[in-house]
Amino acid sequence: MDIVNIGIVGFAHPHVHGYLSVLLDRGDVRVLGGWDEDSHRAATVLGPLGLTVYDTLDALLSSAIDAVVVCSENVRHAELTIAAARSGKHVLCEKPLGTSMKDMNDMVRACREAEVRLMTAFPCRYFPAVREAKLSVERGEIGTVLAIKGTNRGTMPGGWFVDPSLSGGGAVLDHTVHVMDLMRWILEDEPDVVYAEMGRLFHDDLAVEDTGLVHVTFRGGQKTVLDTSWSRGKSFPTFGDVTMEIIGTNGMISVDVYAQKNELYCDERVRAEWSYWGDNPDEDLIGDFVQAIRSGTPAPITGEDGLAAAAVALAAYESASLEVPVVLEVG
């Protein structure tokens, strides 16, 4: 079996740790090293693992790697993905895929022209509860889906996430895309009209919004709504959630991906903790990426998927600024 060689491009996003640990556990993958604009940031992660820190992006991209995992700041996804594609490397890109429609269209086009896979890192599709929910909908167990209420609440991440020149936006961009991808995937339909309320309501001194409520009507008329807020503070027992209540003509499905948890009360920390013990969705996400590279088949979650989910977040900003619902352009 051919080994797939992988390089890490950017270590800004903390999800890089999860992806790296899954990559290193696989027998069919070799991580050759990585590069970050801030070489110290790359060295901090790669050093203890004995992996190479490349001095330049070009050096990494001209090495023996087959693919890259992009975990840079959001605004740099486009430039780094396009550079990797032009070097013939497949790309797994952290979400959100990009911070503007132009950037994301350029990314998708560059990967298509270079005939490399572009996969958006939407691990939430791989939670067993989400997969079962989709299968249940497909089997018609709740009839026709009428509405979905979702939440992807989280903790204010700080750092570059709250610097709009690096993140492209706050809680709405950060947390619209995961559940929007799940809704598109489950409904097998596209968002049509977006209305959003948002604000900076939890952290007075942030430069980005920390609160978002995004309503999306799909083309088939299904009404969905999603809370994207960074509303979990230091006293809340866990960092955040991913939930969906799917309302059908013949029933309902409730998804709470982190419900497989134990309650931990520990005197070292004043707050109670919910300790998740369910499956790690990153394993299947990385597995599918590696499989797509090896088999030459399209990635199961594409750049177009990443673009469609992020387009909703961008429309949400437009809606909030105009205070009216915004119709998405048909892509």
Binding site: T144, L146, A147, K149, Y195, E197, L213, H215, T217, K223, V225, I247, T249
Partner: peptide
């Protein structure tokens, strides 16, 4: 801002 979804035996309202 609100939506109202109805189907036989179901009336679901969602308002922000």
């Amino acid at each position: 801002y609100a939506s109202l979804t109805t189907a036989p035996g179901i009336e679901y309202a969602n308002a922000t």
